[in-house]
């Protein structure tokens, strides 16, 4: 499919997914009600639900999906590995340990956020410091360092889950599976997405070159070391921002870039905006279903990203020659 057509299709999908998210939930609203609530100054329940709950929620879902998909594209280019996702370098592991430890100690939301942020930061710095030693940019070492650190964090997460009791466990599981109900820091997240996204599009030509091999990229005039460090920190910032919004929501960062690739788009100039748009719309859809299906109970969105995405990707994969 031509990237331009795909871009137009996805541009149409954005308002559709957002309105779907605004209409549905424990209190279903008709399109006309949504319209009036958005425009009017009425003081009815619909207006309150929409402005206080739904609009921030769908915007959070969209930006979170975009952040994860963009981070996935950048990491797949950096690691030159199709299995790379935003969590492969141990950033989410560090954040999970931080968040769960705070929860175990009975900390409030703000402290939990701060703690998970600290964990993510420590993991990011540790992986970069250990993986990129002596100025020698060895991608395999970086990748393995991340995977090993993730495994260590996984063990700590299991330990924390074992130590936790009753209600605590549920909160922890929601964090681990990804949950957008406590999303905070929305303006910052949008700023990061737009800033990193536009930089990535501007420098997309270098990403294409980098994906073709490190020596080749250097021979074609790319300052490989600086690019790698830049990509690593850009992806880390995106991932940390997404983790702060919705915990570790799986599947989006790994699979959305592949979905776009399977549709025949490979140039990063297109891959970046298309993945971001698709990731955003997809997460809005998944999050709305998570609110609808068991309403008024809300399920972790991570369940639905996988349930929705797996059949689509399997179909795309089997369709390919």
């Amino acid at each position: 499919m031509s990237p331009r057509v795909l871009f137009l299709l996805l541009l149409c999908a954005v308002p559709l997914s957002l309105s779907f998210g605004l209409m549905n939930g424990s209190l279903p609203l008709a399109p006309i009600e949504v319209w009036y609530a958005l425009l009017g100054n009425n003081e009815d329940t619909a207006t309150e639900v929409l402005w206080q709950l739904r609009l921030p929620r769908v915007l959070a879902a969209f930006v979170c999906g975009g952040l994860l998909a963009l981070s996935g594209v950048l990491l797949q280019a950096l690691l030159r590995n199709p299995l790379a996702d935003p969590y492969i370098l141990g950033i989410s592991g560090g954040a999970a340990v931080g968040a769960l430890a705070a929860m175990l100690l009975g900390a409030g939301l703000a402290t939990t956020q701060l703690s998970s942020f600290t964990g993510a930061l420590l993991a990011t710095v540790a992986v970069f410091g250990l993986g990129f030693q002596h100025g020698e940019r060895n991608i395999y070492r970086l990748l393995l360092t991340g995977v090993v650190l993730s495994a260590g964090c996984g063990a700590l997460v299991s330990l924390l889950l074992t130590l936790a009791q009753g209600e605590q466990v549920k909160g922890m599981l929601f964090w681990l599976m990804g949950d957008l109900s406590h999303a905070q820091g929305l303006p910052f997240a949008w700023f990061m997405l737009l800033a990193v996204g536009s930089c990535a599009i501007v420098w997309s030509g270098g990403l294409d070159v980098l994906a073709g091999g490190l020596d080749k990229a250097a021979a074609l005039g790319v300052a490989v070391g600086r690019w790698q460090a830049g990509l690593y920190f850009a992806a880390a910032v995106l991932t940390v921002t997404a983790l702060q919004l919705g915990g570790s929501i799986g599947f989006v960062g790994l699979m959305i870039p592949h979905a776009i690739r399977l549709l025949g788009v490979n140039a990063h100039r297109w891959l970046i905006p298309l993945s971001t748009l698709l990731g955003g719309s997809f997460l809005v859809l998944a999050d709305t279903l998570a609110r609808m299906v068991w309403s008024p109970l809300q399920l972790p969105v991570g369940i639905f990203t996988a349930l929705l995405g797996v059949p689509v990707l399997l179909w795309l994969l089997s369709r390919r020659r």
Partner: peptide
Amino acid sequence: GEFWGSVQEYVLLGRF
């Protein structure tokens, strides 16, 4: 290196 695009796109990288 793995390259996901077409031959033409691959050759065009030489102009980078």
